[in-house]
Amino acid sequence: MNRIKKVFTRIHIGLWILFSLLIALQLSQDTAHWLHLTVAVMLTALYVFYSHFLLLTRYLGKNKKRAYFLRLAGIVLTGPALYILLHYRKLDTNDLLSEYYLISLFSIIIPFIFLSWLARITENLVLNTIKKEQLEKQAVEAELYYLKSQINPHFLFNTLNNIHTLVYKQAPAAPEAVMRLSSLMRYMIYESNAPTVPLSREMIYLQDYVGLQQLRYKKSPVVDLEITGDTESCHIAPLLFIHLLENAYKHSPARLEPGAIKVIVEIIENTLTFSIQNPIGKHQNNMLEEPGGIGLPNVKKRLALLYPDQHQLEINNTGEIFTVTLKIHSLHSLVHEREAQLLYN
């Protein structure tokens, strides 16, 4: 907001300099005393403009019409004083005094009262629009933060219990499990605060999550994760896929065969496709309407906020297999837009 006010200040200064030059140029062609007249006109205009500007700042939008009009009358009455006092000609008659008063009143006072009103209204409109956008942005950021924080806490507790068991048994997999959990928590707490992250880092996060979930299964990896394309140059909103993966685990049968959950991540040009498929366990036919479920509704809300009109989300439930396919288009252009917004802010 301060930056916008500084821009308005520069605009004011620039316009006053331009106006003074135009007045000086015009008067220099009409009279030899152009400098006196230019100073008189400029000081009168500045006094009237900013007196009324500050008056509007104080009373605009408030129910104090009487106080406003009384002070406005004072500006109209005192405004011509500077023009008359600084005029180069000697005021030796009342007719000349009234003539100069009327000249300054209609050529300077009234026009600059109107211009100050126009400037105040314009600045208020711009500032209110920016405030509204900032409030909306803060509301969106707060909702996104809330949505990102909705990762199932039971996963953390279950993982800690599994690691405790591994440590108790002095299993070789214990150190690796601790490192995966550390990497996962570091990403969630620190790195995910950025607007976007490299897709490669998001994939490492998913792999750590899969590795920790695998502690529950004695068989070979139950998740088949396939990644194709340049994940380094592609950026994505953090923690966007974790709910889909968590949902797949949650609604799959208790016993999973190797590769039962299939995850495909594909980048073609500037389009990202994320597809996840899992078998449906018993009593899971109504998973989308499950009370307290946050997986798919969470993803839908975040996509609507982050990628409006830039994504497609397809859900297919055959009764035995549940498939979710997410496509996000124009990823590179979206990254550039976010960078531009960060520079602007």
Rank of each mutant, 00 (worst) to 15 (best):
E290G: 05
Q284M: 15
P291K: 14
V299S: 03
E289A: 15
M287P: 05
Y209W: 14
L306S: 02
G319C: 05
H329E: 13
Y307L: 06
L239V: 06
L296F: 09
K218C: 01
L334T: 09
I189G: 06
P291M: 11
Q214M: 13
L306G: 03
G281K: 10
A254E: 15
R302F: 06
N286K: 13
E202L: 12
E269F: 02
P308L: 11
T318K: 07
L206Q: 12
E269D: 15
N193D: 10
I280A: 11
Y205L: 15
H243A: 13
I267R: 01
G229R: 00
I236W: 04
I315L: 14
I280N: 03
Y249W: 10
L296R: 02
T231Y: 00
V299M: 05
S252R: 06
E202T: 07
S275P: 02
V324G: 04
N316Y: 08
I227W: 09
L256H: 05
G281N: 08
K219E: 15
K327W: 01
L199Q: 01
K250A: 11
V335E: 10
I280R: 06
S275M: 07
L225R: 02
A304C: 04
Q277M: 13
F241A: 01
T323M: 11
H311K: 03
K300S: 14
I276Q: 03
S220Q: 14
V197G: 04
N298F: 06
L239R: 02
N278H: 09
H329A: 12
N193G: 08
Y209F: 15
Y190C: 06
H251W: 14
L331D: 00
A248H: 08
L305D: 07
S330D: 14
K262I: 11
N270P: 05
K262L: 13
L245K: 08
N278T: 13
P279C: 12
I236C: 03
S275G: 10
Y209K: 07
R302D: 01
L313W: 02
H336D: 15
L303E: 04
P291L: 07
D208N: 15
I264C: 05
Y307R: 01
H251V: 10
V197S: 04
E257P: 01
N285S: 14
E337G: 05
Y190P: 00
L288S: 12
L334K: 06
A304L: 12
A254P: 00
T228L: 00
L215G: 05
P238L: 06
T323S: 13
L225Q: 08
G295Q: 04
N286W: 08
E289M: 14
L303K: 02
D309W: 09
F274V: 04
H332G: 07
S333W: 08
N285P: 00
E226K: 13
G281R: 05
L288G: 11
Y209R: 08
V223K: 00
T271Y: 01
L313S: 08
L199F: 00
I280S: 12
A237T: 14
L199C: 04
E257C: 04
E191H: 10
E266T: 09
P221C: 11
H235Y: 14
L296M: 12
H283Q: 13
G319H: 10
P195V: 12
P198E: 11
Q310D: 14
E226G: 00
R255P: 00
L331Y: 01
A304Y: 01
V222G: 09
K300Y: 04
L206R: 03
S200W: 02
I294N: 04
T318R: 04
L272Q: 00
S333E: 15
I267D: 00
